[in-house]
C-alpha cells in the first residue's frame, strides 16, 4: 500500500459552510426567511387582511392564465396602462426636449420657466391625478394628461442640465479644427447630451408611471391602477397583494430588459457600468454638483 499525500476532499459539512458564507446564499436565505415568516405569521395576526403567500401566488397564477373576476384580465389591464403611458410620455418628450434645450441656451428663457419647473419637480403626481380627474372626467384623457404633467419637468430639467454640461473644451476643440455646425452638433453636442436623454427617459418614465397608476385609481375606470383599486374595494387582499407584486415585477422587467440593455449600448464608451445604485449616485451628484461648473483643465 502506498500513501499518496492528496489534500483531503472537503467534507460536505465544510462545503455547506463555505456556501453559507457566500452572498448568494444570503440572497436566497433572505427570500426564504421572508416567505416563511409571512406564511406562518400571517394567520397569527389579529387581522384577516394579510393573505398568506400561497393564496397570493394562487391568485397571481390565475391572473397569468388570464382567469380573473375583474372586468379586464392582467394583459388587458396592463395593455391599457402601457398605451396611456406611451402617449403621455411621447407628448412630454416632444414638449420637454425643446423647452429644456432652449432653457439651456438662453438665460432669459431659463428664468421664465425655472420656477415652474422646480415646482413641477416637487409636485406629487397625486395632485395631478386628482385635478385631472375633476377636469377631464373618468376617461382616457385624465391618465394621459397626468403622465404628461408628471413626466414633463423631469424631461425638461435633464435636457437643461445636459446643455449646461456640454463640455466647452470639446466645442472649442471643434472650433479650432474648423468643424462645421452640423458636424459639431452631431458628434460633440449629441454625444454629450446622450446621458441626459437617457436620464430624461428613465426619470420621466418612472415618474409618469407612478402618476399613471394614481390617475387610474382616482380618475379612470380601466387599467392596472384601476384594477388594484377594484380588488381593494372588493376586500380581496390577495388581489391587492398580487397586483402589487405584478407592479414590482413590471418595474424590474423594465429595468433589466430595457434600461440596462439600452444603457449598456448607449454607454459602450464608458468604462464604468451604470448600476442600480445610479439613483443614489444621482442624488449625491445633485447635492454636490449643484450649479458648480466643471473646472476647465487648461485655463
Amino acid at each position: 500500500m502506498t500513501t499518496v499525500a492528496t489534500p483531503l476532499p472537503p467534507s460536505p459539512w465544510q462545503k455547506a459552510r463555505t456556501f453559507a458564507a457566500t452572498p448568494r446564499f444570503a440572497r436566497i436565505l433572505s427570500i426564504m426567511v421572508f416567505l416563511l415568516a409571512w406564511q406562518f405569521l400571517a394567520p397569527l395576526l389579529p387581522t384577516d387582511l394579510i393573505p398568506a403567500p400561497l393564496r397570493v401566488l394562487q391568485f397571481m397564477w390565475d391572473e397569468v392564465r388570464a382567469i380573473t373576476l375583474a372586468r379586464a384580465n392582467l394583459y388587458e389591464a396592463f395593455g391599457i396602462s402601457l398605451r396611456r403611458l406611451a402617449i403621455g410620455f411621447a407628448l412630454a418628450f416632444g414638449v420637454g426636449v425643446p423647452v429644456g434645450l432652449l432653457m439651456g441656451v438662453s438665460r432669459s428663457i431659463e428664468n421664465f420657466f425655472q420656477d415652474f419647473v422646480v415646482v413641477g419637480l416637487a409636485m406629487p403626481s397625486l395632485v395631478w391625478a386628482l385635478l385631472t380627474g375633476i377636469w377631464f372626467g373618468m376617461g382616457d384623457t385624465s391618465p394621459v394628461v397626468t403622465v404628461f404633467l408628471a413626466a414633463l419637468p423631469f424631461v425638461i430639467i435633464n435636457m437643461f442640465e445636459g446643455v449646461r454640461d456640454v463640455p466647452k473644451d470639446l466645442t472649442d476643440m471643434a472650433a479650432a479644427f474648423r468643424i462645421g455646425r452640423g458636424r459639431t452638433i452631431r458628434h460633440v453636442i449629441m454625444g454629450s447630451l446622450m446621458p441626459f436623454f437617457f436620464a430624461s427617459l428613465r426619470y420621466g418614465l418612472a415618474n409618469g408611471w407612478k402618476g399613471l397608476v394614481l390617475a387610474e385609481v382616482f380618475a379612470s375606470t380601466s387599467g392596472a391602477g384601476w384594477t388594484i383599486q377594484y380588488w381593494r374595494d372588493a376586500h380581496r387582499a390577495q388581489g391587492v397583494f398580487g397586483y402589487a407584486l405584478f407592479f414590482v415585477l413590471f418595474a424590474l422587467l423594465l429595468e433589466r430588459l430595457v434600461f440596462q440593455r439600452l444603457s449598456r449600448r448607449v454607454f459602450r464608451w464608458r468604462p464604468e457600468i451604470v448600476s442600480v445604485n445610479s439613483t443614489a449616485a444621482q442624488a449625491v451628484a445633485d447635492e454636490t454638483m449643484r450649479d458648480g461648473d466643471r473646472p476647465d483643465e487648461d485655463g
Binding site: 452572498p23 444570503a26 408611471w209
Partner: peptide, 17 residues
Amino acid sequence: GFFRDWVVTTMSTPGLV
C-alpha cells in the same frame, strides 16, 4: 446579498402600492 433585492424592490415599487 441579504438585503439588496429588498432595497431594489421597494425603490422601484410605486408608492401607491
